[in-house]
Design a protein around this nucleic acid. Structure first.
Lengths: 212, 212
DNA sequence: CCTACCGATCGGTAGG
DNA sequence: CCTACCGATCGGTAGG
């Protein structure tokens, strides 16, 4: 008859009473930390306890902010797409750019979205998209469609100008695929000096697919 | 005091004694079924019981063939790379091909390796590479390096001929990335007639990156 | 957000 | 390869 062992450790001290708007900060902490851990170890490879530990909560407390683990995953993806759309909007704010310049900007911005410090949200979406139950996917797909549409507009223009030799829709899938796949091989800030920077990566990507 | 409930079901009948070489067939069954399930649900999303069920074994029996779940994952990846290398070698058997023809062949073959019926091994490697412990990766990396080298030779030649405008090594990463990423969006044999075939996909990929 | 907990499941094993 | 099992862990919950 195995009796459940209770930790003999002293009970944790309660933190000081929290300010009113702290809950949303704690929620944001959970999303940010979940993104990092999901990216490193995958959704199923990360436990809700790992996430709670990393933000200094007890194991049951994340469920005060999220009904279940999948909603945490959804929040990570939503945050990533919202941040990504913001970054794209800011980068394309100058409306005088040529289609080629817009394309260069999109490519460089997307590399940043994948590899800048703290940018773990979109990689999680790329890794664990198939893990999200269909009912959670709807709202994410809406955001993702907005993201794709921005790319598609520019690629359509490039195609019309004869600067893109493939079908514009397949070109979008292939170019974003080429960039997205860098999450499997690119390491930010390695010791080696001959490592390609994101600027170089972006320039080479553009050179590969755009007609001179 | 919860007493463990034992199933009241009749004990399963032992199957007839197996022929001597059957063990290797059963092992191959496990690898093939594991590849399919790992692809569909991921490594952590698939239980060893799922795999045992799918081949008609009891839950403990896969561990007669594999020391642990990770060795099953490694076997899936190894099988995929071996099959892939075989397919490439067969496809490139004609030594009179130009670099452009070899490139077209490599691209088309790789799409088949990802999307042909029963070709679940390499997609598993793409999805769950980061799940494999480092000590298991060594032998896989060796096979993978061989695969990459074949691509690199052809891309170097294309670059020398001025048919590829990006650095040849980055071009390999980006082109294989563009193709590999199709595992996230391409569905084989859909109902829709306007769906791109692998032939079309391959031709468009070549058109996108190769200078006319 | 913590305490205290549970039901289910999971990878894996001993022995045949 | 099956039987019979276990130790550990996991997502999640009731109540404060």
């Amino acid at each position: 008859m195995p009796t459940r062992l209770k930790p003999a450790a002293a009970p944790a001290k309660r933190p000081a009473a929290v300010p009113p708007e702290a809950a949303v900060n704690r929620r944001a902490d959970l999303v940010r930390v979940a993104a990092r851990l999901f990216r490193e170890k995958g959704f199923h490879g990360t436990t809700t306890r790992d996430i709670a530990d990393a933000v200094g909560m007890r194991s049951g407390s994340p469920f005060y902010h999220f009904a279940n683990k999948h909603e945490l995953l959804m929040a990570v993806m939503e945050e990533g797409l919202r941040l990504g759309l913001d970054r794209i909007a800011a980068a394309l704010a100058d409306t005088s750019m040529t289609p080629t310049e817009r394309f260069q900007t999109l490519v460089r911005t997307h590399y940043g979205i994948l590899h800048d410090t703290g940018s773990d949200f979109i990689p999680v979406m790329l890794y664990d998209w198939h893990t999200l139950p269909a009912e959670y996917k709807r709202s994410i797909i809406e955001l993702k469609d907005g993201y794709d549409a921005i790319w598609q507009r520019t690629l359509d223009e490039l195609h019309a100008q004869g600067l893109l030799r493939a079908d514009a829709k397949l070109a979008r899938l292939m170019i974003l695929g080429a960039i997205n796949f860098s999450v499997t091989w690119y390491r930010a800030k390695p010791r080696s000096a001959k490592h390609a920077s994101l600027d170089v990566l972006a320039a080479q990507t553009v050179a590969l697919v755009l007609q001179p």
